[in-house]
Structures are given as C-alpha cells and as structure tokens.
Amino acid sequence: MIKLTNVSKFYSPNVWALNKVSLQIQAGEFVSVVGQSGTGKTTLAKILFAEERPTEGEIIVGGWNITNIKENDIPFLRRQIGFIFQDFKLLQRKNIYENISFAMETCGMDAKKIDLIVPQILKIVGLQSKKDAYPYQLSGGEQQRAAIARALVHQPKFLIADEPTGNLDSINTREIIDLLIRINKLNTTVMLVTHNRDVVNGLNKRVITFEGGRVISDQHNGRYIL
C-alpha cells in the first residue's frame, strides 16, 4: 500500500526532518506514528500527501510512485487520501453539511450524489442531528468528527490523522479513536500521528517510533516507548 525507501527531507545540509526513512504500511493496517515534537512525524504525513517533496528517496502510494509527482496529478492523489488535523480546519461560515458538501462540490461531484453521500457519512460519524450547526456551535470532539466526515467524502483508501486528539479532552479523544478504529474496520488504512502515550498504548496496534528524523522502532502490537 505505502512504501518509503530511504526517504530524506533536508532543509539545509545540517537541518533535516527525515533522514533515510524506509518503511512499509500494508492495506488495511492501523499504524501509529509516534515521537516527540520535531522528530519528523508531520513531515512524513505531509510528504505522503504531496504537500512537501522529499530531498531524496522513493515513495510509492497504492502502487503509484509519487516521489516526483507533477503538480497536475496532486489532486488525484489527494482524492485517494483523507487527512485530518489537530485544529480541524472547518470553514466557520459554513454549517457541517456545507463543510462536507463543499469538499465534494469542489471536486466536481454532482448535486444528487452529494445529497446521497453526505447523510451517510454524517451517520457514520454520528452527526446527523448536527448537520445544520456551525462549527463554533459544536464541541471539539464533534468538530473533529465533522473533519473526519469531510476526509471520508472520497471514500479514501488511506486516512492520515495528524494529532487528531491534540485539542480534545479524554472523553472526546476516546470517541475519535473509536471512530478511527471503525473506519479502519471498513478497510481504510489509517496512519495516526500522535504523541499521546495513553492513546497509543490503548490501541495495541503497530507503532512506528521516530527520533531525530529516523525510525528507531517499528513494532506490531507495540507500545509508546519514549
């Protein structure tokens, strides 16, 4: 599904975010990428999403070599990958339904299909009753669920969650993690970038640990070791 071979990201000869990272993630896996701040976790996510380019190495996503992906091809890559952030990135002037449908509209989906898919996705994330609410009227957990709903509109094969629980309390954190597990069970590969020890230890899934831009540990059914 995802294969990185000797991927490095250097900002200058002595400043790097990733240094010769090689790893593979199989389809349907749930992987936690952990490490302290500044260890290259988010850079890895951004490279997979083609928001950043690697300085060297090779990246293959779903059999597609995206190492030197052309600008025009990036939208097609992003329609196969869902992305969620710590700060949700919801549009404040649009309600939840509009936030989700906007993502579909901008990709040219026709209105009938949008009307069919959005309620289904809202049901998956448990926000049917909040579809007319604006982001500021929702709790942090609900906002993150709305962001997950938006990330699911293209039924991605791969979902990257970059610190999705960073702004949430423990109850909302649990809800979001449960939701990600449910999405993973629907056969979507999930990469959870986090430094939340409790979340990682509670998952009992594969854990890849970063330090200084390098992979220092890759364990199945692993734990947070730092």
Partner: peptide, 15 residues
C-alpha cells in the same frame, strides 16, 4: 481557508 480545503480534498487547480 476555502482554498486550503479545496487543495486538501483534491480540487483541480483550474477549479
């Protein structure tokens, strides 16, 4: 914000 979301969800540059 809208532009960022458009890019995030894979909208074409022309769009």
């Amino acid at each position: 914000d809208e532009i960022y979301i458009m890019k995030l969800v894979g909208a074409n540059t022309s769009f």
